[in-house]
């Protein structure tokens, strides 16, 4: 038996793209259901291990539970529900928008961009003045 009774189901649902909140909820409900079944079996005189096995048997085939969850697309995360958008359109849109990122940054933080632009122009001016004075010094000697 796995460490946790519904580990296999949890992994299968996760790998198939079921949203974690739906997984957490169904596992919690199945855990609670199993607890009730165990109590019922132990009240009939079974040991805890026997009761757990009997409970799991009554819960039924976990693959079938997983299949039912997978048959409802609304339980999946949007990446699995709209794979074309997530894997094609969105990356392309990001790639197209990337060059416009500085413009958006400028709109969002105009002061910072002005400061950054002024500093850049100043440093370019200083560098140009240094080159010019060097050139002049060479020409005059």
């Amino acid at each position: 038996m796995p460490e946790h009774s519904f580990d296999t189901l949890r992994s299968e649902l996760l790998e198939s793209g079921i949203a974690p909140r739906h997984i957490r909820r169904i596992i919690a409900e199945l855990d609670d259901h199993l607890e009730d079944l165990k109590n019922e079996a132990m009240a009939e005189g079974r040991t805890e291990t026997e009761a757990e096995f009997a409970g799991l048997d009554r819960i039924g085939n976990q693959k079938l539970i997983a299949k039912q969850m997978l048959d409802t697309p609304e339980f999946k995360t949007w990446i699995y529900r709209y794979p074309k958008i997530a894997r094609v359109y969105l990356p392309v849109a990001y790639a197209l928008l990337l060059p416009a990122a500085p413009v958006f940054a400028g709109i969002a933080n105009p002061r910072r961009v002005i400061r950054w632009g002024t500093a850049l122009m100043l440093s370019a001016g200083v560098t140009a003045a240094m080159f010019l004075s060097m050139q002049l010094a060479i020409a005059l000697t």
Partner: peptide, 16 residues
């Protein structure tokens, strides 16, 4: 007689 666990996906789907 159903596998008792199968009611949960049905309940969740109905809730959704």
């Amino acid at each position: 007689s159903l596998g008792e666990g199968v009611i949960y996906p049905v309940l969740h789907s109905l809730e959704r």
